[in-house]
C-alpha cells in the first residue's frame, strides 16, 4: 500500500496551557475530497496552520507522501505541490488579477506556459473578464474566485481551502460547493469549514473536530445525522 498523500500523526499544538490541537492523526489519499469541520474553537484553523507551515506543531508529525515535512516553511510546503487558499483572500492587490495568477504559475513553468495556465485558470473559474482589473478593486465574491484561480493555476496535487464560504449567502455557498467538486476532478482537496449546509452539498468524507481532537470521521450522511455532532454544534458546544 502506498503512503497517503498527506497525513498527520499525533499532531499537537499547545499555546501556553491551552491545547488547541491534541494528538490528531488524519490521512488524506491522492485525489480525495475531504472536509474538516467543527464548531468555532474546535482547533480546525490551528490544524490548518500546522498543515500549511504557518505554525510549527509542538509535537507529532506531518507526512507528505510518507516524507516527514513537519514544521517546514510555508514556501517549502507550497513547493511540494500544495496550493493554499486562506480564509480572508490573500491577493496581490496592486497588480492586475492575471498578473498574480501568472506569478503563481511562473514558479514552476516558463513564461509562455504560465500565460496559458493563467488564462486557463481564469476561464475555469469564469472570471476571464476580470483579468486586467487590479485585484484590490474586486468585490468579495470575485476575490474568492480570483484567489482560487491563483491557487489552482500551477496545478498543485493538493488544494487546502480555509473556510471558502466565509461571508457567503446560501446561493453562493451552493455554487462554491459545486466549484470545489469540480476542482476535485484534478486535485485532491481539503476543505476546512464549519458551515453544515456546505458539508451537505459536498457530501464526501468528513472529519469532525471537537476540542482539539477528532470526534468522528465518516461519510457526510452519517456525520450529519450523528447525535454527538449535533450536540457539539448546537447544545453543549454553546454552553
Amino acid at each position: 500500500m502506498s503512503a497517503p498523500l498527506l497525513a498527520t500523526e499525533g499532531l499537537t499544538m499547545r499555546f501556553g496551557g491551552v491545547v488547541a490541537v491534541d494528538g490528531v492523526s488524519v490521512s488524506v489519499e491522492e485525489g480525495e475530497l475531504r472536509c474538516l469541520i467543527g464548531p468555532n474553537g474546535a482547533g480546525k484553523s490551528t490544524f490548518f496552520r500546522c498543515l500549511t507551515g504557518q505554525y510549527r506543531p509542538t509535537s507529532g508529525r506531518v507526512l507528505w507522501r510518507g516524507r516527514d515535512v513537519t514544521g517546514q516553511d510555508p514556501f517549502r510546503l507550497a513547493r511540494l505541490g500544495i496550493g493554499i487558499k486562506t480564509q480572508v483572500p490573500a491577493l496581490f492587490d496592486g497588480l492586475p488579477v492575471v498578473e498574480g495568477v501568472r506569478l503563481a504559475a511562473r514558479r514552476l513553468h516558463g513564461e509562455r506556459e504560465s500565460r496559458r495556465l493563467a488564462d486557463a485558470a481564469l476561464g475555469r473559474l469564469g472570471i476571464a473578464h476580470l483579468a486586467d482589473r487590479p485585484a484590490g478593486l474586486l468585490a468579495h465574491g470575485q476575490r474568492q474566485l480570483a484567489e482560487l484561480a491563483t491557487v489552482v493555476a500551477p496545478r498543485p496535487d493538493l488544494v487546502i481551502l480555509d473556510e471558502p464560504t466565509a461571508g457567503m449567502g446560501t446561493e453562493e455557498t451552493a455554487r462554491t460547493a459545486g466549484l470545489i467538486r469540480e476542482l476535485n476532478r484534478d486535485h485532491a482537496v481539503i476543505v476546512v469549514e464549519h458551515d453544515m449546509q456546505f458539508i451537505r452539498a459536498i457530501a464526501r468524507t468528513v472529519t469532525v473536530f471537537h476540542q482539539g481532537r477528532v470526534l468522528m470521521q465518516d461519510s457526510a450522511d452519517r456525520v450529519l445525522s450523528d447525535p454527538r455532532v449535533r450536540d457539539v454544534y448546537l447544545g453543549r458546544a454553546a454552553a
Partner: peptide, 21 residues
C-alpha cells in the same frame, strides 16, 4: 523583480505560492 513586487503586495500569498520571501 516581479516576485519582489508581489511580496510587497502580499507577503503571505507569495509565500503560499512557494516563493522564498
Amino acid at each position: 523583480g516581479r516576485v519582489a513586487v508581489a511580496i510587497k503586495e502580499n507577503e503571505l500569498r507569495a509565500e503560499l505560492l512557494g516563493y522564498d520571501v
